[in-house]
Write a protein that binds this DNA or RNA. Sequence first.
DNA 1: AATTATTGTCTAAATTATAGACAATAAAAT
DNA 2: ATTTTATTGTCTATAATTTAGACAATAATT
Lengths: 241, 241
Amino acid sequence: MHHPSEQNYIQQLSIDCVIFGYHEKQLKVLVPKLDFNGDFWAVPGGFVYQSEDMDAAANRILQERTGISEIYLEQFYVFGKAARNSLEFIDKLISLNPERLTGNGLNRKEYDWFTRRFVSVGYYALVDINKVTPQKTDLDESIHWYNIKELPAMIMDHNAIVAKALDTLRLSLDEKLIAFNLLPETFTMKEVQELYETVFDKPFARNNFQKKILDLNVLERLDKKFTGAANKAPFLYRIKK
Amino acid sequence: MHHPSEQNYIQQLSIDCVIFGYHEKQLKVLVPKLDFNGDFWAVPGGFVYQSEDMDAAANRILQERTGISEIYLEQFYVFGKAARNSLEFIDKLISLNPERLTGNGLNRKEYDWFTRRFVSVGYYALVDINKVTPQKTDLDESIHWYNIKELPAMIMDHNAIVAKALDTLRLSLDEKLIAFNLLPETFTMKEVQELYETVFDKPFARNNFQKKILDLNVLERLDKKFTGAANKAPFLYRIKK
DNA sequence: AATTATTGTCTAAATTATAGACAATAAAAT
DNA sequence: ATTTTATTGTCTATAATTTAGACAATAATT
């Protein structure tokens, strides 16, 4: 296996990705758990090859974890504190995994590479959760969708990174018309409303919400959806082509 | 003189600062011209020391050029294209300045350091133009305030960096209440309006603009300003303490 | 055919934004 | 001293938008 320290990456520059999904009134974040003793969660991240656009690197990292390309992706903040390094994390990792990470498991060069200060560019992604098959990497024990309100304590500043991503998402959702990236191809108006209510954690009035969304003039109305319920069936909508 | 390549900087990471000022209905940007043959303009930039917060580095760079601290400063975008390097610029610089940049003027190591791909974090600053005494560095022939509409052609992607900074400024001005950083301690309502009209490049209705700003409830009204004009004197305002 | 729960949309009321008007006033002109 | 001039500060009327309330339409069950 090739260690990052041997690869042709830009030094001390990392990318951290907050992958948002949505399902049943829950805003979710895709978080892998590392395949080591000790409970280490970390948002998907990686490094930028010398000959690779930074946006392309973020796309590559996301594709590795989600299996899909053509992902809505946006950089949202650069985390650049001098004290921002993984020293504490790596030391704890080594102490809990002595058999795997001493000797030729993690040599001095690699240790130094990993534990240096890193400036990290935060990206957030919006994906249709149904299209994603979460992918483990060699280093992962598992990878799961977590309700953003029930995230585990992650390594380093990763919880703060998610919080900042959510702030940005809320600021961008209205002006940028990006919410639909979190929904499947077709959806009902109620589903759109529930998505908004979940992201902003507050209720919207049904009558006026519907008007507001329809007035955007970006949706086309399809057939009615069969629900089986003893009441009027809702229309399905999709983004206009 | 110490060359950057000898300093303890983070590799391949730079900061570029767009310093905005305002004077007489013109939005201005502080741009140094390099002290070499050939007309090279570049927005103030620099690198981040290993033990320095990125925000602190941006502050340091700004302080060097403006002479003031306590500057309103915000990161706005990361420019991370793989092709983003100064090779073309440096080669042109050398060819136009053979006497200064061959031999021991710029050795191979320095040349390699400078011409590598750099990921640059863009910061924009809002300053009271009256408080700033533009400072040249060793490498500058001059440093001047340019009307943003009459900027010279700068090196690399610096014109695009300024354009992106202006986009961000326009998006932030209303929601963030930061316009007053561009004005002196005290100002008239007309001056605030002219500033807005300059930034957005469109007129505002005087009556309603005044109401909107006063309704923000952040200004306190001081004495009237003596203008000498044959008409009603305007009040001075300042930000509430 | 009546009932039920939800959907889609209409209208009224409240709020906010825009446009028009005018009094107040500092200094110059008469 | 009074009138004139240009600008400022604020008020009100109107227009536009947002919010709240109401109700008909309807798919399946009773």
